[in-house]
Structure formats: C-alpha cells, structure tokens
Amino acid sequence: MTPVEQLEARFPYMFGRHTVSMEYYDGWLPIFAQACEQIDAVLGEDKRDFHWVQVKEKFGTGRFYFRMGKSARLVVDLIGGPGGHAVIKESTEAGHSIADRIDAIVDGAEARTGTTCMVCGAAARTRSYNGYYLTVCAAHAPAERDNRQI
C-alpha cells in the first residue's frame, strides 16, 4: 500500500467524496498527513461531514481545500510584481471554534510547505524558476541555465 493509500484508509471520511483534484508531492506528504491527524483529533466523534476537495501546489506552496458540512473555505491568491504575493482567505465558519481550529491547522500546514522541498522534504525556500514558483532544496532546484526570471 502506498503512503497515500495508507492515509486514505486511515481517514476514509476525508477522502472518497467528489473532489476537484488530488495532487500529492512526496516531500509534502508528511505535512499533509499531520494535518489530517490533527483535524481528526479536533473533530473527535463528530466528523461534521469534513472532506478534502482539492490538494495541489499553487505558486510553489501547498493548497489544501476542504468542505465541512455545507461550508467551504475560500482562498484567493494574487500575484503581482517582485514579492507581490497576497493571499485572501475567508474562514469556513468564522467564529466557530472547531472551524477556526481546522483553518489554523490548514494555514500552518500550507505555510510549512513554503519551507519544505516538495520532492524530498528537506529544508527549502520558494523561488521563481523561469516564471514558475517551486519550493525545492538545492539538490532538486532546476539547473541555473533554466532559472531565468520572466
């Protein structure tokens, strides 16, 4: 069984419903798995119809989108000029302690992907490589000749 299959078997309620896409990166899988464990602990016996809708990379870091009951988390990324990256987030159910805790877990996991190599899990930083943002360590960074800013 692959690590992803093990995770899905451990938390079946989080997976198996309608999804947009699920893209896993080896280096970030432990971060995502830890978020699943923490969310499961917060939910306790009442799983509140929680499930992942999309797991992906965006602008070099992980994005973990979920639904909880009829509520969904809204995240909008904006990119402009050098270093001009802004993220606008709307909480799942603002003011609801469980939703606030889950939002904080997901925020923390996404932030950790910005300092963890998506390939191997080593320390890394997010950079632009030929116009694409990647968070990779020196061993997995594209060759310098391919690292031109657009």
Rank of each mutant, 00 (worst) to 15 (best):
M1H: 13
P3F: 07
P3S: 11
V4L: 13
E5Q: 15
E5A: 14
Q6P: 01
L7M: 15
A9V: 01
A9T: 11
R10I: 04
F11D: 04
P12A: 07
M14W: 12
H18S: 10
H18Y: 08
T19I: 11
S21L: 11
S21M: 10
M22S: 12
E23W: 12
E23T: 12
E23D: 14
E23I: 03
D26E: 13
G27H: 04
W28M: 02
L29P: 08
I31T: 15
F32K: 13
Q34D: 15
A35Q: 07
C36R: 00
D40Q: 08
D40N: 13
V42H: 09
L43S: 01
G44K: 10
F50T: 04
W52Y: 15
W52H: 01
Q54C: 05
Q54Y: 02
E57W: 07
K58W: 08
K58S: 10
F59C: 04
F59I: 13
F64L: 15
F64W: 15
Y65F: 09
Y65A: 04
Y65Q: 08
F66T: 02
M68G: 03
G69I: 02
K70I: 02
K70E: 14
K70R: 13
S71H: 14
L74M: 02
V76C: 05
D77G: 02
D77R: 05
L78V: 08
L78F: 06
G81V: 09
H85G: 01
I88M: 09
S91D: 10
A94W: 13
A94Q: 14
H96Q: 08
H96A: 06
S97L: 07
I98R: 13
A99S: 14
D100V: 04
D100A: 12
R101W: 00
D103E: 09
D103S: 03
A104V: 02
A104F: 06
I105S: 01
I105Q: 05
D107Q: 11
E110C: 03
R112A: 06
R112P: 00
T113K: 01
T113F: 00
G114R: 11
T115A: 06
T115G: 03
T116V: 03
T116I: 04
C117M: 03
G121L: 08
A124G: 02
R127H: 05
S128L: 14
Y129L: 12
Y132T: 13
Y133K: 07
L134R: 12
L134N: 00
T135C: 13
T135A: 05
A138C: 01
A139D: 15
A139N: 12
P142Q: 04
A143H: 09
A143Q: 10
E144Q: 07
R145Y: 05
R145F: 08
D146C: 08
N147T: 10
R148Y: 11
Q149S: 09
I150Y: 12
